[in-house]
Design a protein around this nucleic acid. Structure first.
Length: 584
RNA sequence: GUCCUCGUAGUUCAACGGAUAGAACAAGGGCCUCCUAAGCCCUAGAUGUAGGUUCGAUUCCUGCCGAGGACACCA
C-alpha cells in the first residue's frame, strides 16, 4: 500500500537526516484538495516542533533527499512530483504509471482486490446481533446485526480467522415472567398457531398486570429459579420458546444475509456459572454483599458488578464472564469485539475489568463497538414492554414494498421477475446502507422516510452506478463483437487523460488502505463513504465524456476503467453485506 | 447526584490535530433526437457557548448550556 511505502521511506530518510532524534508520530494522508497532490505528510511540521526549527527548511531537506533516493524518469518512479507547501507539508504526486498498474491489478485480482494477509494466524471473535428469545426482533437489533456482520466480512477479507457468535438472550428472569404468563394466561391452541406473536402479547400483559399487582414479580422470580434448577415443565416451555424464536430469527437472518459460526446463547454457559462465582470467591476477586455476590470495582471507580443474586440466581454478568472464559479457551482470540449499543457501556466496562481481575484478558483486546440507539419519535427509548417498538420484519417488508413501487415507476419495461428481484435487493440494501454509511454515536430518531431513502447517498445510488457499468459493458461487447483488434488487444490506459478519469484512478488506488483503516477503527462506514465517493466520481465521468462513442481505443480504455470501478464497487459492497444488481 | 455518549447548513450525516469545514435530502436554476435522469452541472446555506493547550483545534483539555443513556438483584 502506498501510504505505508511513503511512510517507510520518510522514516528512513528522516532517520538518516536527523540521527539520534526520536521521530515523533506523523501521518501520510490524502489531502482534501487534490491540487496539493495525491499524498501529503506533516512529518516536517512535527519535527520542526521537536527540533525548534523552521518546518519549511526541514521539508526542503527531506524533499531533496527523497529525490536523491529515487531516480528521475517519471515512468520508473513511484512519484512524479514532490513539492513542499506553506506551513511545511510535503506533497507527493503519484506517477501515472502507478495508476495504470493499479488498474491492471484490479482487473487481474477482481474480487480479491483489496484483500490482504495482515490478519493471518490471528483470530477475532465478534459478538453481534444477540436478540432475546420469545420476542420478535426489532429495530433495536438492526444496528448490532448489520454492523457486526460487516465487521465480520472486513476482518475475513484481511485474512483474519473470524468467529461470529450470536450470544442469544435465552436465559434469565424474562423467562420466569414468560413461563408464569404462559402457565396462567396462555391458551395453548392460540399460542401454537402463532407462538412469538402470542408470547409477546403475554409479555406485555405481564408488565401491565405487574403495575397493579407487585406480587407477580415474585412469582416470576420463582419460575426463573425453577427453570435454572432444571424443573421439567419449565424446561419444556423454555425449549418450546427457544425453538419457535429461532425459527423467526433465521428467517430474518436469511433475508438480511447474516451468518454466524456459533449461536451460543446465555443458557449455553449455565453449567459454568457456579464455578466462576466459586473461583471468584476463592481467589478473593468476588465477595458477599447484602446477601448477593459482587465483584468490587472500587479501584477502577466503577460500581460493583453483581454476579449472583440474593435468591441464588445468576445474571447476564455471570454469563458474560463465562463466555469470555469459554472463548479464550476455545478460540484463543486476539480480539473480542462486542457490537452492542451504547447503553451497555457501563456493563461492558465492568465486564472487561472483571475479566482483568480473573486474568482472562491477557493478550486479548476486548473492545466495545458502540453505537447510538434507535429512538422512538418521542426522542426516547422504544420500550418492548409497552409494545411500541418497530419490528424488523415489518421494516423489511415495508422497504421492499416501497422499492417495488419505485422499480415499477422507473423501469416498467423489465420483466415481472426481474422487478421483484430488484425490489427485494434494493429494499434490503437501503436499510443496511442507511446504518452502515454512518458511524454516528449519536442516537437515531427513527424516521421511515430517512430509513427508506433511495436517492443520493444511498445503496440504490451505488447499485445504480454498478448496473450502469454492466449495461455499458454489454453494449460494448455487442458493438465490438466482430472486431478482432478490440477483442485481443490490451487496453491502453495511457489514453486516459481526462481529469475525470484521473480522479477515478486516484480513488481506486486507495481502496486497500480504506479497508485496512475501516478494520482498524472498526468502522464499516469508511468503506461506505469511499464507495460513495467512487460512484460519484464515476457518474461525473459518465456524464462528461462519451464512452462507447469515443475512438475505438479510447473506448476500450474507458470500458476497462469502468470495469475496474465495477469491481471495486462490488468488493466494497460485499464487505458491507450489500448485493449488486446487473440491471435496475 | 455520579458516570458514559453526543451537539457541524432547514434536515440527515462527513472531515487519523492539518491546507478554502465536505456530501445528501429539502429550496432555486439548468442538462435526455446521445452509453440507464434511481443520474449530472450550477446557486444559496453550518462547527452550542466561554476559556486553555499549539505553528495550526470541528477534532485534545476544563467550565457552562442542551439532548439521549446508564447507575447491584432485567438483559
Amino acid at each position: 500500500m502506498l501510504n505505508k511505502e511513503i511512510k517507510e521511506t520518510l522514516n528512513k530518510i528522516v532517520g538518516d537526516l536527523y540521527q539520534g532524534v526520536k521521530i515523533p508520530d506523523f501521518v501520510v494522508e490524502w489531502p482534501q484538495d487534490k491540487g496539493f497532490g495525491d499524498y501529503a505528510s506533516n512529518v516536517a511540521m512535527v519535527l520542526a516542533g521537536k527540533l525548534n526549527r523552521d518546518p519549511m527548511e526541514i521539508a526542503e531537506k527531506i524533499k531533496d533527499k527523497i529525490s536523491e533516493v529515487c531516480e528521475d524518469g517519471e515512468d520508473e518512479n513511484l512519484f512524479s512530483e514532490i513539492t513542499i507547501a506553506k506551513p511545511g507539508f510535503i506533497n507527493f504526486r503519484i506517477s501515472d504509471k502507478q495508476f495504470r498498474q493499479n488498474l491492471c491489478k484490479i482487473l487481474k485480482k477482481k474480487n480479491e482486490f483489496g484483500s490482504s494477509e495482515i490478519g493471518k494466524d490471528k483470530t477475532v471473535v465478534i459478538d453481534y446481533s444477540a436478540p432475546n428469545i420469545a420476542k420478535p426482533m426489532h429495530i433495536g437489533h438492526l444496528r448490532s446485526t448489520i454492523i457486526g456482520q460487516s465487521l465480520y466480512n472486513i476482518y475475513k477479507f484481511l485474512g483474519y480467522k473470524v468467529i461470529g457468535d450470536n450470544h442469544l438472550g435465552d436465559w434469565g428472569t424474562q423467562f420466569g415472567k414468560l413461563i408464569y404468563a404462559y402457565k396462567n394466561w396462555g391458551d395453548k391452541k392460540i399460542i401454537n398457531k402463532n407462538p412469538i406473536e402470542e408470547m409477546t402479547k403475554l409479555y406485555i400483559r405481564f408488565h401491565k398486570e405487574t403495575e397493579k399487582n407487585k406480587e407477580l414479580e415474585e412469582f416470576a422470580r420463582k419460575e426463573t429459579k425453577k427453570l435454572q434448577d432444571k424443573d421439567g415443565e419449565n424446561i419444556k416451555i423454555w425449549k418450546f420458546l427457544v425453538r419457535e424464536s429461532l425459527k423467526d430469527f433465521k428467517k430474518i437472518y436469511k433475508t438480511l444475509n447474516i451468518k454466524f459460526d456459533y449461536v451460543l446463547g446465555e443458557s449455553f454457559y449455565d453449567e459454568m456459572l457456579a464455578k466462576i462465582v466459586k473461583e471468584g470467591l476463592d481467589r478473593k476477586i468476588a465477595s458477599k454483599s447484602e446477601g448477593a455476590i459482587i465483584i468490587s470495582l472500587d479501584e477502577y471507580n466503577l460500581p460493583p458488578f453483581l454476579i449472583k443474586k440474593t435468591d441464588g440466581a445468576y445474571l447476564y454478568t455471570t454469563t458474560d464472564l463465562a463466555a469470555i472464559k469459554y472463548r479464550k479457551e476455545k478460540f484463543k482470540p486476539r480480539k473480542i469485539l462486542y457490537v452492542v449499543a451504547n447503553e451497555q457501556a457501563l456493563h461492558l466496562q465492568q465486564l472487561f475489568y472483571s475479566a482483568d481481575l480473573f486474568g482472562l484478558s491477557k493478550n486479548i483486546e476486548m473492545k466495545h463497538i458502540k453505537f447510538g440507539m434507535v429512538l422512538g419519535k418521542t426522542g426516547k427509548k422504544f420500550s418492548t414492554r409497552k409494545g411500541e417498538t418497530i419490528r424488523l420484519d415489518d421494516l423489511i417488508n415495508k422497504s421492499i414494498k416501497l422499492s417495488q413501487k419505485i422499480v415499477e415507476e422507473k423501469n416498467p419495461k423489465l420483466t415481472k421477475k426481474e422487478k421483484k428481484e430488484i425490489a427485494k435487493v434494493v429494499g434490503i440494501s437501503a436499510i443496511k446502507y442507511n446504518d452502515l454509511s454512518q458511524n454516528r454515536m449519536t442516537d437515531i430518531v427513527f424516521n421511515w422516510d430517512k430509513m427508506l431513502s433511495f436517492e443520493g447517498n444511498s445503496a440504490p445510488y451505488l447499485q445504480y452506478t454498478y448496473a450502469r457499468i454492466k449495461s455499458l459493458r454489454r453494449k460494448y461487447d455487442e458493438l465490438y463483437r466482430l472486431d478482432r483488434l478490440n477483442v485481443f488487444d490490451k487496453p491502453d490506459f495511457s489514453l486516459l487523460k481526462e481529469g475525470a478519469e484521473k480522479n477515478i484512478m486516484r480513488q481506486l488506488i486507495k481502496f486497500p488502505e480504506v479497508i485496512e483503516s475501516s478494520a482498524q477503527e472498526n468502522s464499516p462506514h469508511l468503506i461506505a463513504l469511499y464507495i460513495y465517493e467512487l460512484a460519484s466520481l464515476y457518474n461525473n465521468f459518465y456524464n462528461s465524456v462519451p464512452i462507447l462513442k469515443s475512438e475505438k481505443n479510447i473506448a476500450k480504455a474507458r470500458i476497462y476503467l469502468s470495469k475496474s470501478v465495477a469491481v471495486v464497487i462490488k468488493n466494497g459492497l460485499d464487505l458491507l453485506g450489500i448485493d449488486v444488481l446487473e440491471r435496475m
